[in-house]
């Protein structure tokens, strides 16, 4: 119908205006993935984390030593009967590190998820509705931000008796404020973009706008933040366990360090091995977080 239009005598058929359909739609996520994997340190971090996951999931059954059992002479050094030595009551450190990783990683992951969910919810409501809702929610958030987090977590764990659940809860409660601030800022920025108005004009309601339109757009910085939050949750758990506030029934890296802290000078391996495990895990997660950040940051994308 366009061809017959007399006013557009310089026009070839309009359909030619369209770009030639690409062979495969270039999904933004796919491209992000490509950039991520091209980044050497990020790919290294990913491989490292996968290796740690593999070791903690399949390691204990492959190694087959009970980490709670006295298996050898206490405080014997690595290579002398056991690969990584034994602790002060003769338990195998390697077995402990392999099994302890499970709980450590679960605590890290679950409390990070909790942190992120609470943070996103609070930030989303504050940023989307603004006004009084925003003021109230942000005052609430500030309250949690100004409390010394380790102290608060210690108090919580002491009050409710140290169990895995209370530790996760404690880490979650002290960590979400940062995520909430970030989410709120992103919601305010994106909420002002025209495509949000466009969706509203097309008939979208508040819930749809918040979680289907704005949230996906604000995820990139939240994903980066959550990688960092996971890392710090692991450190937090280790800190609590080290202070003797961990769940005594659950073997974690922090607990091993905590129980052996008195032997640090005589038997360095008892503390160093779980310490290195924590270090490598947090390092891997940070590298991945940095990689995601670079991949999502448009300035890092070199496009002509």
């Amino acid at each position: 119908m366009m061809k017959s239009d007399p006013m557009t005598d310089t026009l070839p058929p309009q359909a030619e205006v369209a770009p030639p359909p690409a062979a495969k739609p270039d999904h933004p996520m796919r491209e992000t993935m490509k950039i991520f994997l091209r980044n050497k340190s990020a790919a290294g971090g990913l491989i490292l984390l996968l290796a740690i996951l593999f070791a903690t999931v399949f390691g204990p059954s492959m190694y087959g030593v009970d980490p709670l059992e006295m298996v050898w002479v206490p405080l014997s050094p690595p290579g002398d009967g056991t690969p990584l030595g034994t602790d002060y009551i003769g338990r195998d450190i390697l077995a402990g590190v392999l099994v302890g990783g499970r709980v450590t990683l679960i605590v890290g992951a679950v409390s990070a998820i909790m942190t992120i969910v609470i943070g996103i919810l609070v930030g989303a409501f504050a940023g989307f509705f603004g006004g009084r809702t925003d003021v109230a929610l942000m005052k609430f958030t500030e309250f949690f931000q100004v409390l010394p987090s380790l102290l608060l977590a210690m108090v919580l764990v002491t009050i409710f008796a140290p169990s895995l659940f209370t530790i996760i809860l404690a880490i979650g409660i002290v960590g979400w404020a940062q995520v909430a601030r970030l989410t709120r800022a992103e919601f305010m920025r994106i909420g002002n973009l025209e495509y949000v108005k466009a969706a509203r004009a097309a008939g979208a309601g508040n819930a749809y706008l918040m979680f289907r339109v704005i949230l996906p757009g604000s995820l990139p910085p939240i994903i980066v933040a959550s990688a960092l939050v996971t890392g710090s949750s692991i450190l937090f758990e280790a800190g609590l366990s080290f202070l003797g506030l961990g769940d005594p029934n659950q073997l974690t890296w922090g607990l091993i360090i905590g129980q052996n802290q008195n032997y640090l000078l005589d038997a360095w391996w008892t503390v160093t091995c779980p310490g290195v495990a924590i270090f490598l895990t947090v390092l891997a997660i940070s590298l991945i977080g940095d990689g995601i950040n670079d991949a999502l940051n448009p300035r890092a994308r070199k496009r002509a």
């Binding site: 007399p6 006013m7 557009t8 005598d9 310089t10 026009l11 070839p12 030619e16 205006v17 002509a304």
Partner: peptide, 14 residues
Amino acid sequence: AALREIAGMVPQLG
């Protein structure tokens, strides 16, 4: 008079 158009668009760099 109706506006004349320049059909199509500027070619992409590269």
